[in-house]
C-alpha cells in the first residue's frame, strides 16, 4: 500500500503524503543501486508481470530492473506475441495472467483508463506504465524525484512543461504531482496542443517559449510524437523546432543559471531539444533514467511488500 493506494494508476488520486512516501523510499532504493551487489531480498518469492500493449524499451526495462533488484521474479508479456492478436479481450488477458498469481501487474496500454479497468477485475496490485493520453504515474514521480534531488525541495520552485501537452500522459502526471509538492507549473506549446481549460488545474498557460522558461527552476521538454507531425496540429518539424524547441542559444539567453532540463525520452534530437542542450550541463536526462529504477523499486516494494488483507487480519 502507498498510503491508502492499493494501486498506482493516476497521480491525480495521490495525496502529497503518498507522493512523498514514494520519493523518500526511492532515496534508500537509489543507495541500493550504488552497491557492489545491486540486489536486496525484499521481494523474494513475489512476482511482477509486465503487460505491455504498446511499444516501450525504457519503461519496461526500468520496471524489470527494479523488480529484479528487489529479487522479485519478472515476466515480460508483450501484445505482439500474445493472444491479443487472436482476439482475446483485455480483461480476459489480465484474468488469465492473474490466475498465475502475480503480486503486481504493470500495464501499458494505448487506451486511457485501461489499467483502472484491469484493476477493477483482478485481485493483485496494478501499476500503470502509461495509458493513452491519461497518465504515466511512475514518470511523474521520477520527474519529481529528479528535480527534488537536484534542488533540495520543490517548495516554491517553478517548473515549465513544454510541448504537446494535450497528448502527453507525462505532462498530465507532472501536472498532478508537482503542485502538491509546492511547485508552480507553467505549460507551453502550440495552441493546438494545449487542452482547453487546463488552467483550472492550477497552472499558467503560455504560447511563447521565452515567457515560459525564463526564471524557471526546471524545464521539462516533451517529445513531439512523429505521428502528429504533418497533421493539422503542427505543419512541420522545422516550424515547431523554431518556436518551441530548446537550443543552446535559447538556453543560454533565457534559462536562469542552474536551471535543469528534463526530457522523458526518447528525444527527437534537433526537434524539441538540440544535442548541445540534451548533452549539456543543465541536462538531467540520464539522472531521470537512473532515478526511474529507484522510484519504480519504491512503488513495487510498497505495493507487493504487504498484503492489505493480511494487514487487517
Amino acid at each position: 500500500m502507498i498510503g491508502r493506494q492499493k494501486h498506482c494508476i493516476a497521480l491525480e488520486d495521490f495525496s502529497r503524503e503518498e507522493i512523498l512516501q514514494v520519493l523518500d523510499l526511492a532515496v534508500s532504493m537509489k543507495e541500493v543501486l550504488r552497491r557492489p551487489i545491486k540486489k536486496v531480498p525484499s521481494l523474494r518469492g513475489k512476482s511482477v508481470v509486465n503487460l505491455f500493449f504498446e511499444a516501450s524499451t525504457r519503461t519496461r526495462s526500468s520496471f524489470e530492473i527494479a523488480a529484479k533488484t528487489l529479487s522479485a521474479d519478472c515476466l515480460n508479456w508483450t501484445s505482439a506475441s500474445s493472444s491479443v492478436t487472436k482476439g482475446e479481450t483485455l480483461i480476459d488477458t489480465a484474468r488469465n495472467l492473474e490466475a498465475m498469481r502475480p503480486d503486481v501487474l504493470v500495464i501499458r496500454h494505448s487506451a486511457g483508463g485501461a489499467p483502472r479497468l484491469v484493476a477493477d477485475h483482478v485481485g493483485c496490485a496494478v501499476v500503470s506504465a502509461g495509458d493513452g493520453a491519461h497518465e504515466h504515474p511512475s514518470q511523474g514521480l521520477l520527474d519529481c524525484f529528479t528535480v527534488r534531488e537536484r534542488l533540495g525541495t520543490l517548495e516554491g520552485k517553478t517548473l515549465a512543461i513544454v510541448g504537446d501537452v494535450s497528448h502527453s500522459r507525462v505532462a498530465r502526471s507532472d501536472l498532478h504531482a508537482f503542485p502538491k509538492l509546492g511547485a508552480r507549473v507553467r505549460l507551453c506549446g502550440p495552441p493546438t496542443m494545449m487542452p482547453s481549460g487546463v488552467e483550472k488545474l492550477g497552472c499558467t498557460v503560455h504560447t511563447d517559449l521565452r515567457a515560459a522558461v525564463e526564471g524557471a527552476d526546471a524545464v521539462i521538454m516533451l517529445r513531439i510524437q512523429h505521428e502528429r507531425i504533418g497533421d493539422p496540429l503542427i505543419p512541420n518539424t522545422r516550424e515547431y523546432s523554431k518556436l518551441w524547441g530548446l537550443n543552446a542559444r535559447k538556453a543560454a539567453d533565457w534559462l536562469k543559471p542552474g536551471a535543469l532540463v528534463l526530457h522523458p525520452g526518447p528525444i527527437n534530437r534537433g526537434v524539441e531539444l538540440s544535442p548541445e542542450v540534451a548533452d549539456g550541463p543543465a541536462s538531467v536526462i540520464l539522472d531521470q533514467v537512473q532515478n526511474g529504477v529507484a522510484v519504480r523499486m519504491a512503488i513495487l516494494y510498497l505495493l507487493a511488500g504487504g498484503d492489505a488483507a493480511e494487514a487487517k487480519a
Binding site: 500500500m1 543507495e31 541500493v32 525484499s42 528487489l70 511488500g305 498484503d307 494487514a311
Partner: peptide, 22 residues
C-alpha cells in the same frame, strides 16, 4: 538499515519503513 532484508515482509501487512544504509 535492515528493512529490505527482513524475513517477515509478507506477514507484516504494511511494508516497513526503509531508512538509509550508509
Amino acid at each position: 538499515d535492515i528493512a529490505l532484508y527482513r524475513d517477515d515482509l509478507s506477514a507484516r501487512g504494511v511494508a516497513p519503513v526503509v531508512g538509509p544504509t550508509d
